[in-house]
């Protein structure tokens, strides 16, 4: 029976949603082909949590748990994963195209002298071969690719595939791997995160952005409340950052961060091109603005004409109610 090996990414001991998405997708492929889904969990102190991968559809979990594996290290992670791939004789290897996945997948492909299709947004099997769909030229065209080589490797774009607990409550075996030599030329001394525990706009699925219309740093609390109710990150336009209301790391736009969340809510921002260039890839755009002639009002999927100081608190309240 063939095996699909999945890299289940974790950060700071917590498995990422992107990893669950890949395991879920592997399960789907396995349902068609009858393959075995094996998840590889690499990290430190993650044994207790690893079981959850089974709920997303892994038949077996290979655990590499060691203090030295606490932080991502391209060399040791690659060695561990390649060992797992060789031991299981897996014929399909799947990653998530996160920052880590984009780094690790090509290394594994090179080490195993095989082929990789990265950042795929569609995946399927025909005659035992992976068929993937990946965007080129900033999404202008799509390439349908049949992967040759053994094993076949693909990385999947985050937030495209659903993470589904198809086997809720199921217990699967967690097997500790035999670890290779974990000494490395690379030594992670310290991990510094800017903005503390704050959700980074470039990774968030939902972003609530405030613009010049927010009228001052003190009014950003209503934006933050809305963001909290949605589990969203708070973004800002260049005008708000320039005015010193928000830190530069929150800036979305041409000269800030380029984002493509599932939901982008703009409060009091006109949608000038420099901002649009940074968020036009969002799947759903909601604009709240007094000025119905603001350029964003035509471009947004949903436009709410109204004073953000009235609209946003009502939205927050309704979302809280809904969530309860």
């Amino acid at each position: 029976m063939s095996t699909i090996l999945v890299f289940a990414e974790q950060q700071s001991g917590v498995f990422k949603k992107a990893g669950f998405e890949v395991v879920s997708q592997a399960r789907k492929l396995a349902e068609e082909s009858g393959a075995n889904v094996v998840a590889v969990a690499i990290g430190s102190g993650i044994e207790d949590q690893a079981g959850v991968l089974g709920e997303y559809g892994a038949d077996k979990i290979l655990l590499a748990d060691d203090e030295k594996l606490e932080n991502y290290n391209p060399e040791t992670y690659k060695n561990v994963f390649v060992n797992a791939a060789r031991d299981t004789e897996a014929d399909i290897l799947l990653f998530s195209a996160t920052t880590t996945g984009k780094d690790l997948a090509p290394r594994v492909a090179a080490a195993m002298d095989t082929t990789l299709a990265s950042d795929c947004i569609g995946i399927g099997l025909s005659d035992g071969k992976l068929n993937v769909n990946r965007p080129l030229y900033a999404g202008k065209v799509f390439a349908h690719i049949v992967i040759e080589g053994n094993p076949q490797i693909a990385s999947l774009r985050p937030n495209v595939f659903e993470a589904v607990k198809s086997r809720e409550g199921q217990n699967v075996s967690v097997e500790k791997m035999e670890l290779p030599d974990l000494s490395s030329k690379i030594n992670v001394v310290e991990v510094r995160r800017s903005g503390g525990d704050k959700l980074d706009v470039s990774e968030a699925e939902i972003i609530v952005t405030g613009g010049r219309g927010v009228r001052g740093p003190e009014h950003f609390d209503i934006i933050e409340e809305l963001a909290n109710s949605l589990g969203a990150a708070v973004g800002a336009t260049r005008a708000a950052v320039d005015a010193g209301w928000r830190p530069h790391e929150d800036q979305v736009g041409q000269t800030g961060k380029v984002v493509s969340p599932n939901l982008y809510i703009m409060c009091g921002a006109s949608g000038a091109i420099q901002h649009w260039a940074g968020m036009s890839g969002s799947k759903c755009i909601v604009a709240i603005n007094k000025d119905e002639n603001a350029p964003i009002m035509k471009k947004a999927d949903y436009s709410i004409i109204g004073d953000l100081f009235e609209v946003v608190p009502v939205m927050t309240e309704e979302i809280k109610k809904f969530r309860e």
Binding site: Y137, A138, G139, K140, Q254, T255, I273, Q274, A277, G278
Partner: peptide, 22 residues
């Protein structure tokens, strides 16, 4: 570093905002 997206835009879509050339 802010120039990087502008250059990428010029390379892929012939405009500095990287909006679709079509």
């Amino acid at each position: 570093q802010e120039l990087e997206p502008a250059f990428r835009g010029l390379e892929t879509n012939s405009n500095p905002w990287n909006l679709g050339m079509s």
